[in-house]
């Protein structure tokens, strides 16, 4: 039962993480390959502050705020870039963040990581046990879902999609593409920060090794598998992917196979991605009004 609770918490946190990426990738067409950086900033900020005795409510806000501020700063130079090269710029940014976490030992304890992060306490409620934490994580996930749902269904959401589909046309119609992209990027970063905060206080130990490119790719996978540019897609993606991964543990295969099974599983992963892109690039849930794939 605890395992199921644990996985549900992981799914809830990854849903937030994926929802936050989806607003950038799915709705605005920003290929953010450094999304994990904002997750890391949220996690580290909140963890370091609570370890200094700052109450969770404040450190959570700081974590989210720092992530958003970082999004704003990195957005200034990189949002001018087109498509894939925006991706590479953000990827580089994420690497820089990870290296700071790794090398500024005086602040972050470097590769030793931060042990003993406390479980949160909000308005005199302690979220200590698994079911309690699940309530917190689910609550945050639902909140994220509602906020992002509200934003994307609003006129602002339609502008984002217009920019994604044809930036020049949107600009001609008088929309400030850069400002809109910046808003989308900052909102994505804020929620990634939230996911990071929840992650740090759940796992209670973080180290720079948790925040690598692999993590970004996993969450990108979740978004694409579930259906980018849809509200429900990232959630469905998180559920399916994490359950699929973990269900392999229950196949009761002999441990000798593990050395083969590990890479084999990753191979299957890669293959699914490729096949998905060839046969169903829109993911499990298809975006409304997007029946045909268009070339940009």
């Amino acid at each position: 039962m605890d395992l199921l609770l644990h996985l549900s918490i992981v799914i809830a946190i990854y849903s937030i993480f994926a929802l936050s990426l989806n607003i950038e990738v799915g709705y605005t067409g920003l290929f953010n390959f450094g999304h994990v950086a904002f997750f890391a900033i949220g996690a580290y900020t909140s963890a370091l502050l609570t370890l200094q005795g700052v109450p969770f409510s404040l450190s959570m806000i700081a974590g989210i705020g720092f992530a958003g501020a970082a999004g704003f700063l990195i957005g200034i130079p990189s949002l001018k870039l087109q498509g894939d090269y925006f991706g590479i710029a953000t990827l580089g940014f994420a690497e820089i963040v990870r290296m700071i976490l790794q090398n500024q030992v005086a602040w972050t304890k470097g590769p030793m990581g931060l042990p003993g992060i406390t479980r949160p306490e909000l308005f005199s409620w302690r979220f200590d046990t698994l079911p309690e934490y699940l309530v917190l994580a689910l609550g945050a996930a639902i909140l994220t879902f509602l906020v992002i749902g509200f934003l994307t269904l609003s006129p602002f959401g339609r502008v984002l999609k217009a920019i994604r589909d044809d930036e020049t046309a949107a600009a001609i119609l008088g929309k400030n593409a850069f400002a809109c992209k910046m808003k989308s990027f900052v909102i994505g970063s804020l929620f990634a920060g939230l996911a990071g905060v929840l992650w740090a206080h759940y796992i209670t130990f973080i180290s720079p090794g948790d925040f690598t490119l692999t993590e970004t790719i996993l969450v990108l996978l979740i978004v694409v598998l579930g259906g980018k540019g849809t509200l429900l897609g990232p959630v469905v993606g998180a559920v399916v992917l994490i359950f699929f991964q973990e269900s392999l543990r229950f196949l009761r295969l002999p441990p000798e196979w593990s050395s083969i099974l590990g890479p084999l599983q990753q191979m299957v992963f890669g293959l699914i991605l490729v096949l998905l892109m060839i046969f169903r690039p829109e993911g499990l849930i298809r975006e409304k009004g997007k029946e045909k794939i268009d070339r940009d």
């Binding site: 990738v25 067409g29 290929f31 498509g83 894939d84 991706g87 990108l220 996978l221 694409v224 980018k228 991605l273 892109m277 690039p281 794939i293 268009d294 070339r295 940009d296």
Partner: peptide
């Protein structure tokens, strides 16, 4: 296909 699809 579009770029994101190719990239993924």
């Amino acid at each position: 296909a579009n770029r994101l699809t190719l990239l993924i």
